[in-house]
């Protein structure tokens, strides 16, 4: 029992317990600044959304189906983004198949198996720095390796090359977010499983990964969204501005000419504004909707996993 040096405080009066408005000025100012920041952030997002939708409204309302289902064309009334949608969806698929398993696997290794020594730490720092490398640099790497060196497999400037390049681009993000999700799993869970005689692999499979899955999913979806928004690396890898969709064999779908929605946006934006006014904005809206749906799928998956975990 320690005795307060100042002795027993004075008897409380009502005044001493009343809230005084002036006292917490700093707190109120701080709260005001926070509100301002939130308002500005949300306001800017809405401004971007609204302006894109307003600009694209003309094209989307007058010929929505044609815009979605037609290939590229030099005629503004016929031009559509079906090739871009196809390219973007294929890229999303390639990123999911390539970057997710590799990234999540690397994260599991770094968090659960690596010894935490200098080599591990160097790798971790390298991964963090790779996440900040400009996307165009990945594009140059993709051009050198996937388009040129591995031409025999990728077919050169193809959706495979583009998808692999973007997989590399998002790999550090997948590794970092998955690592953080794995690190956030309480050690009491793995201790409990080890205590019952589980092997390390069983602990990872039955405890660590399921508990980390919601976080891993969030990171993975963020990385897909990032991949779907990139135009620069695809430009370097050789995504086509225009190409005519001829009769394509199955392999051509993957190894032939390709484009993606951000490329459509960029190309439309370069065309004379008098006839091509709303096309870039309309294509942007399509990108947003695609990303929105991928998000939705992830949110539903996340909710189901969380529910199964009983949280």
């Amino acid at each position: 029992m320690s005795v307060k040096p100042a002795g027993r405080p004075d008897k409380p009066t009502l005044g001493s317990l009343q809230r005084s408005r002036s006292a917490d000025v700093r707190g109120q100012v701080f709260l005001g600044l926070l509100l301002l920041a939130v308002t500005l952030a949300i306001g800017m997002v809405f401004a971007v959304l609204l302006s894109v939708i307003a600009d694209g409204a003309d094209v989307l309302s007058s010929r929505l189906w044609g815009f979605l289902s037609n290939p590229s064309s030099s005629d503004p009334v016929k031009a559509g983004v079906v090739q871009g949608i196809r390219g973007s969806l294929l890229i999303a698929a390639i990123v999911s198949v390539v970057a997710f398993p590799i990234g999540i696997g690397a994260a599991v290794y770094l968090e659960e198996y690596a010894d935490g020594g200098p080599v591990t730490r160097t790798v971790e720092i390298a991964v963090r720095n790779l996440a900040g490398v400009p996307s165009i640099v990945y594009g140059l790497f993709g051009l050198a390796v996937f388009v040129n060196t591995l031409r025999g497999i990728t077919g050169g400037s193809s959706v495979i090359s583009g998808g692999l390049t973007l997989s590399l681009l998002v790999l550090p993000i997948v590794i970092i977010t998955a690592s953080e999700a794995i690190r956030a799993v309480p050690s009491s869970l793995s201790d409990g499983a080890y205590g019952l005689g589980a092997t390390q692999w069983e602990v990872i499979r039955t405890q660590t990964l399921p508990s980390a899955m919601p976080g891993i999913l969030t990171g993975s979806v963020l990385s897909i969204a990032r991949a779907l928004g990139e135009a620069a690396p695809l430009l370097v890898v050789g995504a086509a501005a225009f190409y005519t969709t001829g009769f394509q064999g199955f392999l051509d779908q993957f190894q032939g000419a390709f484009t993606a929605l951000p490329m459509n946006v960029a190309n439309f934006a370069k065309l004379p504004a008098d006839q091509w006014a709303g096309h870039a904005a309309a294509a942007s809206v399509v990108v947003l909707v695609v990303v929105f749906f991928i998000n939705l799928v992830a949110i539903v998956a996340r909710a189901r996993i969380t529910k199964r975990l009983g949280r």
Partner: peptide
């Protein structure tokens, strides 16, 4: 060793699974 020598921890640490699956885990 741990399959023969069980452990109960200071903080209750049930797995985020059903009651049944918790018991059936081991």
């Amino acid at each position: 060793v741990r399959r023969r020598i069980g452990m109960v921890f200071q903080k209750p640490n049930p797995f985020p699974k059903s009651i049944f699956d918790n018991v059936a885990y081991g």
